[in-house]
Computed example of a mutant assay.
Amino acid sequence: MRISAAQRTENENRIRAAMDRLLRGEIPSGGKCDIKTLAIEATVDRTAFYGTRPYAHLREKFERRLQALQQVGEIPDPREAQIARLKAENAKLKERLAASEQTVDELTDFRTQVLARLAAQHEEIVHLRESAAGTSRVSHLPAPRTTVIGTCS
C-alpha cells in the first residue's frame, strides 16, 4: 500500500519524536532503546526501517545518535545502564576476589614456612638437650633461691 507524501511526513515526525523520547531515556515499560521500541512508539511497521525501505535513513540516524551517547558514557536505557553498572561492579569484585585469593595463598605459604622453621628449631633444641645431657663438661646451675619478703610492722 502506497502512502501519500503527507502521511510519510507525518510518520517521519512521529518517528523523530519517538526517537527523541527514547534517547532522553523515556523508555516505555517492557521496551528498550532499540528499533523495535522505536517502531512501536511511532506506530510504524518495523520493517520500514531496513534495507531500502522509506525510514532506513532514520534508523541509521537513531543508531548513530545512540552510539554517540554511549561513547560519552550516557546510556538512555535504564536497563542497559544497570547492566553496564553491574558488569563494571562484577569486574571489580572479580579483581578483589583474585587479590584476596592471592593474599590467602601467600599467607598459607608463609604459615607453612613458619611451621617448618619452628619444627626445625624444636628439633635443634631437642638435639642440643640430648647432646648436653650426655657430656660431663656441662655444669648445671643451681636452682634459684626463693626469698621470703617479710612484712613491716
Rank of each mutant, 00 (worst) to 15 (best):
M1P: 11
M1T: 12
R2K: 13
I3R: 02
A5L: 07
A5C: 07
A5I: 08
A6K: 14
T9E: 10
E10S: 14
N11Y: 04
N11Q: 03
N13Y: 02
N13S: 09
A17Q: 12
A17R: 08
A18P: 01
M19R: 08
R21D: 12
R21A: 15
L23S: 04
L23N: 09
G25R: 03
E26I: 03
E26S: 11
I27E: 06
S29G: 11
G30W: 00
K32M: 02
C33Y: 05
C33E: 01
C33G: 00
I35L: 06
L38N: 01
L38M: 06
A39H: 02
I40Y: 09
E41K: 01
E41R: 00
T43M: 10
T43D: 10
R46P: 05
R46N: 04
T47Q: 04
T47M: 02
G51S: 08
T52Y: 12
R53F: 03
P54V: 01
Y55S: 01
H57P: 07
H57G: 09
E60R: 15
E60Y: 13
K61F: 00
F62D: 00
E63G: 06
E63K: 05
R64A: 12
L66F: 05
Q67L: 14
Q67P: 02
Q67R: 14
Q70K: 15
Q71G: 07
G73L: 00
G73R: 02
E74V: 15
D77G: 01
D77E: 01
P78G: 02
P78W: 00
P78V: 02
R79E: 02
E80A: 15
A84T: 05
A84R: 12
R85S: 13
L86D: 04
L86I: 07
K87N: 06
N90A: 15
A91Y: 04
A91H: 11
K92N: 10
E95Q: 15
A99W: 05
S100P: 09
V104P: 04
D105T: 15
D105F: 15
E106R: 11
D109A: 15
F110E: 14
Q113P: 09
V114K: 03
R117C: 07
R117H: 12
A119C: 12
A120D: 14
Q121A: 07
H122M: 11
E124D: 12
V126F: 01
H127R: 15
L128P: 01
R129Y: 06
R129M: 08
A132C: 12
A133I: 05
A133D: 07
G134F: 01
G134P: 07
S136Y: 11
R137D: 09
S139H: 10
S139V: 12
S139R: 14
S139I: 13
H140F: 11
L141M: 12
L141R: 10
L141C: 10
L141W: 07
P142W: 05
A143D: 12
T146V: 12
T147G: 03
T147F: 06
V148G: 06
G150M: 02
G150A: 08
S153G: 06
S153M: 12
